[in-house]
């Protein structure tokens, strides 16, 4: 069984890096993203897939990533590569797999079967490798709910903007209006299924202002984090997702009050004129977790 802690860990920033580039995979944990996504798909040329898998395997085996989550983006299911990608990733001891171009619950099942076989083959605990799905087409987005619910291994879904925009025949110059429905549907589906939801990459590396705006937008929509392509973007995402001092203090007081009242046998009570009960605990806990990850909370909770 996968622990909820592993599934629900903080994933504000998920940084892609080519599994083929030693200088990137060597020590990218230094930039302290929440997750690293080693890419075997688009970042690796067709005739270099094998050498990239080789690098990936040895990196995961030998390098201490200091607690940063290690995911692998495998090649799409209509390629000859994805099965070997899964075997190498599972054998190396990766935390999870990102399914590229996932269109349906069936795609998740297909990957899940291969992952389970690899876990058995390489002696890893059955069910230990997590899954997430990248939704890259209109059909995938419309199937977001069934994909999110397809497996207990699933921890989240991510929008992949490049391919999605290509399908929608839009350019991305409309300030994100072309993806508004997709984003809304996805975050709604993810919440309904109890998994996380991640936004697409922002490819204009010099436009850090635009990147921050987009990150604020998706944070307010309810996304858990964002895929990123450059370490310069990490701090910005973490800043946007960091709770304010007031929010932290409020969350701290809520958590303490709920606990203290629970010990006294009180389920519902008032604080500063607002009704509070156990339903507020989860939000307060998430705020404290974010505050800790942002280095803003040094208290005892």
């Amino acid at each position: 069984m996968i622990s909820t802690d592993r599934k629900n860990r903080l994933r504000r920033s998920m940084m892609f890096l080519s599994a083929q580039r030693p200088n990137l995979i060597r020590d990218s944990y230094l930039f302290a993203p929440d997750s690293l996504i080693f890419d075997l798909e688009d970042a690796v040329a067709e005739n270099q897939k094998d050498s990239a898998r080789f690098s990936l395997y040895h990196a995961i085996k030998n390098i201490d990533y200091h607690g940063v989550e290690r995911l692998v983006r495998i090649n799409a299911l209509d390629t000859p590569h994805w099965q070997e990608d899964i075997r190498v990733s599972v054998a190396a001891g990766i935390d999870g797999i990102r399914i590229a171009k996932c269109e349906s619950a069936q795609d998740v099942h297909t990957v899940e079967t291969a992952v389970a076989a690899a876990e058995e083959e390489f002696g890893r605990p059955i069910g230990s490798v997590l899954l997430m799905a990248a939704l890259e087409s209109p059909l995938a987005v419309l199937n977001a709910l069934e994909i999110s619910k397809a497996s207990p291994r699933m921890f989240g879904i991510a929008l992949s903007g490049g391919d999605f925009r290509r399908c929608m025949r839009t350019t991305g110059k409309g300030g994100g209006v072309d993806m508004f429905t997709a984003r809304g549907l996805m975050v709604l589906s993810a919440r309904a299924a109890g998994v996380q939801c991640f936004d697409t990459v922002y490819t204009d590396l010099d436009d850090l202002e635009g990147f921050e705006k987009e990150t604020q937008l998706i944070k307010h929509m309810g996304f858990d984090g964002k895929s990123i392509v450059n370490p310069r973007q990490i701090k910005i995402v973490h800043k946007v997702f960091a709770p304010s001092q007031e929010e932290i203090q409020e969350a701290e007081r809520v958590m303490i009050a709920i606990r203290e009242n629970a010990e006294k046998g009180i389920g519902i009570f008032q604080m500063d004129g607002k009704m509070l009960d156990i339903a507020f605990m989860e939000g307060a806990e998430r705020t404290i977790a974010l505050a800790k990850a942002s280095g803003l909370y040094k208290g005892d909770l």
Partner: peptide, 8 residues
Amino acid sequence: TTNPKDLM
């Protein structure tokens, strides 16, 4: 520089 390590 745009090298993220140099910047860090």
